[in-house]
């Protein structure tokens, strides 16, 4: 379809956006097929500890304090990071879009109530709230996803509400009302598609921040104890930071690459989806 072609042509124009996309696709490729290429389990002790990168060609990125393969950890960790990032973002979008749409469309008291709740979440520092919530629940993949989405939906809700407040005044909404269309249909089928652009842009940033939050939690030992994530690896390497800095640095680089890629893609999407803002 030509709309997609137009979009792609606009997206392609920006070098940084393309770099971000290539990096992101690389990370996704690693997450999908990587685990078959490296040793089966990142928790297995396979070689002597403190093996520096490049010392042994069989373990190109070296080993950690217990002799676990760092390459395997990073590859498996990419799966954990992306999965948690995507799942948390999807949940946050579901909640945030619904709350924002209802508040923005109906205004009045539903808006007041929902926005006060949203603000309540926003006044507490995101990461602290996440730490407290994980500490309350048992750390597991599911609870971490829920906690991250619980701290990131308010931003979505506010964005969607603002879009709805302006879109609901548009005449096409009025013409849907006068032909008797139901509110659910007007909200989700008529108005929502009109604010997809900012939502898409925001979701790429949300995935990035979800990955950061997850890494932070794992670094503090609040991650799922059964999952080798990048944050867990940094946490493990922290004990040997002065003697073997690579243990923390390598998963750190993986985080930087992924988060940077997502941010570049988000910026590229923003420019491609809002061509009129291009010459800012």
């Amino acid at each position: 379809m030509s709309a997609w072609r137009d979009f792609w042509l606009r997206y392609r124009r920006k070098t940084s956006a393309m770099i971000g996309l290539v990096l992101l696709l690389f990370v996704m490729l690693v997450a999908i097929i990587g685990p078959w290429l490296v040793s089966a389990d990142p928790w297995d002790i396979v070689v002597r500890p403190f093996l520096w990168p490049g010392e042994d060609p069989e373990f190109p990125l070296g080993s950690d304090v217990l002799g676990r393969d760092i390459l395997s950890g990073i590859v498996h960790g990419s799966r954990v990071s992306l999965l948690i990032g995507l799942a948390a973002t999807a949940t946050a979008l579901g909640v945030g879009v619904t709350v924002g749409a209802v508040a923005g469309y109906f205004r009045g008291w539903p808006d007041d109530i929902l926005m006060r709740i949203t603000e309540l979440f926003q006044t507490i520092p995101t990461f602290l709230l996440a730490v407290v919530l994980v500490a309350i629940f048992k750390p597991s993949m599911l609870s971490i996803i829920l906690v991250i989405s619980a701290v990131s939906w308010p931003a979505v809700a506010r964005l969607v509400r603002a879009e709805f407040l302006s879109l609901r005044e548009r005449e096409f909404v009025q013409s849907c009302v006068v032909i008797g269309m139901s509110e659910t249909r007007i909200i989700f089928q008529q108005i929502l598609p009109n604010c997809l652009a900012p939502i898409i842009v925001m979701s790429s940033i949300l995935v990035a921040s979800a990955i950061l939050t997850e890494s932070g939690l794992s670094f503090l030992g609040l991650g799922d104890p059964n999952l080798m994530s990048w944050g867990t690896m940094i946490g493990i390497g922290r004990e040997a930071m002065r003697t073997a800095w690579y243990m923390s640095a390598l998963p750190g680089i993986a985080i930087i690459i992924t988060v940077l890629a997502l941010n570049l893609v988000g910026e590229g999407l923003n420019d491609a989806l809002n061509p009129r803002l291009k010459n800012r």
Partner: peptide
Amino acid sequence: FQEPMTSLNPV
């Protein structure tokens, strides 16, 4: 309505 330009959903 009066405004056929804006009375249809653009997307």
